[in-house]
Design a protein around this nucleic acid. Structure first.
Lengths: 204, 204
DNA sequence: TTTTATAATTTTGTATACTATTTTATAACA
DNA sequence: TGTTATAAAATAGTATACAAAATTATAAAA
């Protein structure tokens, strides 16, 4: 019988991460350990651990929220194209029935849901494909990039990039019909369009 | 004029990492903060930071040196094949003169050097190709995997996997002759052979 | 006014003490 | 002998104090 009390450093990590990702912390403010600690009602020690982790994940740099350059984004998405392209190809052969059902649901929400729903569904569409590889290393790498990916997802959804959902539908279709080459190709093109649209819209 | 005094947590990180990678710490011992701190002549605080970082890099898990399963290794090398395959393809078009010269040197040492030299040259051969992409995201991902990669490199070099250096030479030749497709294909096959050989030899 | 030097302040890095938790050893029981 | 319960020891998590470093404010000089 294990009571898993959550440690303060986990609490601090999740709180700070979520506040950054949801835009609740102004990107220009300097994140000082003492203020964060005071705000969360804990001491500096667990806050330090949390910041260290967030720095390693690239969300924070020099105690400030990290805002990536155009080049940073292109590099990150190059990695996404390679890993998620592979994942899509893999899915065409090995995806589970449950995976297909969940992907279909994501596409459906993409057509009918609220903005917030669409944000979540877009995240999930990619997440499901990645997780279906059962490769935890890939899952972790994508996970570590979520902060930056979130920025772009916000842009393409809020500013309604054309054909976003149709592209998801096409990728799903390629997977369902076991066409791995096509699934990979479509995934790479899809991510490429996200980058170009976002970089243009964010005026980078 | 900035005097960059190295902090204790950096010192601790490097010391512990190097001791693990060089096999100076028995893989079965439990890494306790206090003993490490005492051994390094510093307090627990910077040691804690160092361990946290090493845990995130996958070198340590649950305060013990992490020994990957066969599946872990296959997953990590799947990522390597994707990223380094891309890197090799990229090099065929864009590698610098200096890069080619350094790769040639690695192949040469592979034929003539001591075991230790060959270890270093093998590391460098891959490292140079990865760095030539100028994609820091890819560089960092590969970097975070070095602990596991090191294990396999040790195996293939010490146990003299056949054709190891010849494969490097073939990859280099494909790069020099600007054949990106071939360079990628050879790199993937090369890594695949490393995995199969090592998993067999390590009896996993 | 701008620039530079110095002082004051803030913030981080480290040590240490204390508490909570986990692990290990010991003893009681089946 | 093996299993479970309890005590003890070891270890990790946290708070806090203080020192070192970085940052900011202030004053003096050009």
């Amino acid at each position: 019988m294990k009571k898993k009390e959550v440690h303060n450093y986990t609490y601090a990590y999740e709180q700070i991460r979520d506040q950054i990702l949801s835009g609740k912390i102004d990107p220009n403010t300097k994140l000082t350990e003492e203020k964060l600690a005071e705000h969360l009602g804990i001491s500096r020690t667990p806050v330090r651990s949390a910041i260290a982790k967030l720095e390693q994940e690239g969300l924070i740099k020099n105690k400030r929220i990290f805002i990536p350059t155009q080049t940073d984004i292109r590099h990150i998405f190059q990695v996404r194209m390679l890993l998620e392209g592979f994942a899509a190809r893999y899915c065409a052969d090995y995806i589970s029935e449950d995976g297909i059902a969940r992907l279909k649901e994501c596409v459906k929400i993409g057509h009918t849901g609220t903005t917030e729903d669409i944000m979540e569904a877009n995240f999930l569409f990619h997440q499901i494909i990645v997780e279906e590889t059962k490769n935890l290393e890939i899952v972790h790498i994508i996970d570590r990039m979520q902060s930056i990916i979130y920025l772009l997802r916000k842009t393409v959804v809020l500013q309604k990039r054309p054909h976003l959902i149709e592209e998801h539908a096409a990728i799903l279709e390629a997977i369902v019909s076991h066409d791995g080459n096509l699934a990979e190709k479509l995934m790479i093109e899809h991510l490429q369009k996200d980058v170009e649209f976002s970089i243009h819209r964010l005026r980078m």
